[in-house]
Write a protein that binds this DNA or RNA. Structure first.
Length: 445
RNA sequence: CGGGGAGUGGCGCAGCUUGGUAGCGCAUCUGGUUUGGGACCAGAGGGUCGCAGGUUCAAAUCCUGUCUCCCCGACCA
């Protein structure tokens, strides 16, 4: 993409309404624009990151055996009366009436709808287990939206729902999602730790939140330091095999959010292993048994016992929230520093002097070769000053930059800069291209 | 929802106390000079001061109402 053709409205000054780094940087980097409290337009740069995050989530769901589908944003109130949550959900639920005065709502989650779909089509234990998911916009009318996309009212979420015959089988589904989450976050360069969590309005008795540590985290978390050292299981894990060991290893050590914190258990941890920090929740897994299948009559025929309600779980990942979380985790004074797997472009090409024949030719050459190699470069071919280009490129945080100008070209070199470390090396154009390709071939997992 | 704060060109802000017909920086446009860390000079365009009422000869400024946004708290992906 040529910057002259792209839409990248970056801001030099920090907008007054934004209080934390991720919110400020998303606005400054031209990633989004606020339309109303907690509601945002995703501008092209932000949209690219959102799509990258979404795609990683999708790939890891598919790998774990979950099946993708799509349910609507608007749901009938009827469904929620069945589960009893229409009244329970309160003002967080955005209620709507259509022209026929029918009661609708903008979905805050989809347990009811998928339970209803399941019961309609699945009548036998032979259909089980099932793991179904979708990635859809949701709305929760928060009393106080804040922190940009980290706590918006409208948000993109992946939610998976599991259906099993027994609790024992349901735990296996739970474990699949647990393991898939570890890999999902690791692929984004995030260190997300499973912590015991409250089950909240979704209900149930087994739940973990996946937390990334960040200074501006919404909640206080406590855990054993060794938990932070356990690597992700890796993409070669067998989802049809026994995952209990992987889960046990990561749930044996103390880790809890403030809501379920056990001061006594925490006190038992050696002082040098105690971690007390702030965290951002990026995902949560729940097992809630027959909480919805019972009242909504989602039953299957059992081999021996007639009809039984299915055991269910639900598993969410806050896709849009992660974009903010990533920036909280990866930024410096100059701006954002994207992990390669989620960067909006793979590399920036900065022309120090557009219009200079040698510079133009070298830029075109590098741009074409990177594209031919399957990379996605952003070529700053605009006429703005060198300093402005450096600042803007640092701000939007592409992992690598290739700086091309007459000064270097006289010596036969261009400059390759690593955004994260700031380290620069001078290379020939071909070596620079090779170096960028090399850096991008190193996957996180 | 309780407490606090703010709405003035695209962005960041001043002006309001003590009413007199709107200003600064950035951005934008034109011309010229520049050209490797947010360039310089000259000129230009752009705002009925959130909205509605009221007071007054006169309201961004004073009064009333209302909407919106932000921060702290409680609550939550």
């Amino acid at each position: 993409m040529r910057l002259s053709k792209f839409f990248l409205p970056t801001l030099k000054e920090t907008p007054a309404d934004a209080a934390i780094a991720s919110h400020q940087l998303m606005l400054r980097a031209g990633m989004m624009r606020q339309e109303s409290a907690g509601i945002y337009s995703w501008l092209p740069l932000g949209f690219r990151v959102l799509k990258k995050v979404e795609q990683i989530v999708r790939e890891e769901q598919d790998r774990a055996g979950a099946i993708e589908m799509l349910m609507p944003t608007i749901q009938p109130a009827e469904l929620w009366r069945e589960s009893g949550r229409y009244d329970d959900y309160g003002d967080e639920m955005l209620r709507i009436r259509d022209r026929h005065d029918r009661e609708l709502l903008y979905g805050p989650t989809n347990e009811e709808m998928l339970t209803s779909i399941f019961r309609n089509f699945c009548k036998s234990y032979k259909e089980l287990p099932k793991l179904l998911y979708h990635i859809q916009w949701k709305f929760r009318d928060e009393r106080r939206p804040r922190f940009g996309v980290m706590r918006g009212r409208e948000f993109l979420m992946k939610d998976t729902y599991s259906f099993d015959l027994t609790e024992e089988d349901a735990i296996k589904s739970y474990n699949k999602m647990f393991v898939a989450y570890l890999n999902t976050f690791a692929r984004m360069g995030l260190k997300a730790f499973p912590m015991k969590a409250e089950t909240g309005p979704i209900g149930g008795d087994l739940s973990h939140e996946f937390i990334i540590l960040a200074e501006n985290g919404e909640s206080e978390v406590f855990c054993h330091r060794d938990l932070l050292e356990i690597p992700a299981p890796g993409l070669d894990v067998d989802f049809n095999g026994d995952l209990q060991g992987i889960v046990d290893e990561r749930t044996a050590l103390y880790a809890a959010t403030e809501d379920v914190h056990d001061a006594e258990a925490f006190a038992a941890i050696p002082d040098d292993k105690k971690v007390s920090a702030r965290g951002i929740e990026v995902g949560q897994v729940f097992y809630f048994g027959t909480k919805y299948s019972e009242p909504m009559k989602a039953k299957v025929s059992h081999p021996q016992n007639g009809e039984v309600p299915v055991h269910m779980g639900s598993y969410g990942i806050g896709v849009s929230r992660i974009v903010g979380g990533l920036i909280e985790a990866f930024n410096d004074d100059a701006g954002i520093i994207w992990p390669r797997s989620v960067a909006p472009f793979d590399v920036g090409i900065l022309s120090m002097r557009p219009g200079d024949d040698a510079t133009d030719a070298a830029c075109e050459d590098v741009y074409c070769k990177l594209k031919a190699a399957g990379l996605d470069p952003l070529y700053d071919d605009t006429k703005s000053s060198a300093g402005a280009k450096f600042s803007q490129m640092d701000l939007i945080g592409l992992p690598d930059q290739i700086i091309i100008g007459p000064r270097g070209l006289k010596q036969g070199v261009v400059e390759v800069k690593d955004r994260a470390s700031g380290e620069r090396v001078e290379l020939s154009t071909d070596d620079a291209v090779a170096e960028i390709i090399r850096r991008h071939s190193q996957a996180v997992l």
